[in-house]
Amino acid sequence: MYRTIATFVIIALFITSCQSGSSTRYELVYSMEPGTATGPQPVQSIAPGNRYKIGFVPKGSEIEYFRYAALGAKEAANNLGIDVILSGPESADAERQIQVVEQLIDQKVDLIAISANDPVKLVPVLQKARKSGIKVITWDADTEPQCREFFVNMVEPEVLGRHLLDTLALSMGEKGNFAIMTGSFAAANLNEWLKWINVQQSEYYPDMNLVATVATDDDQEKAYEVAKKLLEDYPNLDGILGNSSVGPPAAAHAVKEAGKSGSVKVVGLSSPNLMGPYLREGSAQIATLWSPKKLGYLTIMLAYNYLNGQMPMDGQEIDGVGNIRLNGDMVIMGEPLDFTAENVSQYDF
């Protein structure tokens, strides 16, 4: 009786153990996936129907340099699928720029990226923007640090300043008189560069003599006038260094007009498109700049990351830009480019 029951139980055991082995094609042994709720690849996506709006404010919308920066910003906006509102004063004017910012506040943009014409005058309006929930970053030219989150700088000011003087020294043979044409004594970045230009000169080039530092107000007409005046005032001038984009072309033009092409060396910060003709004909020797398109592009990329809660990091790689550096709350895009008669045609900005 018991024996038969035991026999049945054992037979049943065997049958079940055999069945369990062949019932399914795949049998899970071990899973490293944390749970079934999360998908294999968590993809961070923008909330649909809520495209970011970023106000992109240059110093002056008519200035060639800023037009190219805007192109880069547009490209980034297209790639990211966000809206970038380009609006700025026609020329580099702080009061007009304040009005532009006011308009952007009214449009309820998510972020304002501004290249400030004046580091102090813009502070109130930017603080107002921040109070109304708009994030603020600066690019190209900084403001007072308290009214923006971070500053997207093109190059290290020290590197640029010293490099600019080096290019002039190279062209002048490290001796002679030279003048500096700066954009505005109010612009913080230009002043910073000026400081390092002077430091480099006093450290390494005792035979070089700075005769004058004049402002162009980033206006082409005025810059031309200033340059002509410099040539007249200092007949034994050997070189002119411009540290804002309108300076070197104006100086080269004036030098050419004065028939002093080659004897008065012209170097400085300006774009290849502006400087190309002068470089090729010898009115200017070296132009230095970075890609404004790249700067605009980088600014929008970082702004987008910031809107998504990601602050820039030192050594971070940004697609289409490369690795950035971070110095405090200042982002450094890279190294400056030098344009000469040989390579100026390679660049399109």
């Binding site: 795949y26 049998e27 899970l28 042994v29 071990y30 899973s31 490293m32 996936e33």
Partner: peptide, 27 residues
């Protein structure tokens, strides 16, 4: 498409031998 996991191991009772299959997918 029929693999029960893409990060883990499972036994495959397919044609022929039984096999122990381990998989990992990069994120």
């Amino acid at each position: 498409a029929r693999y029960p996991v893409l990060n883990g191991s499972f036994r495959s009772n397919g044609t022929g031998d039984q096999k122990l299959v381990s998989v990992n997918q990069t994120s």
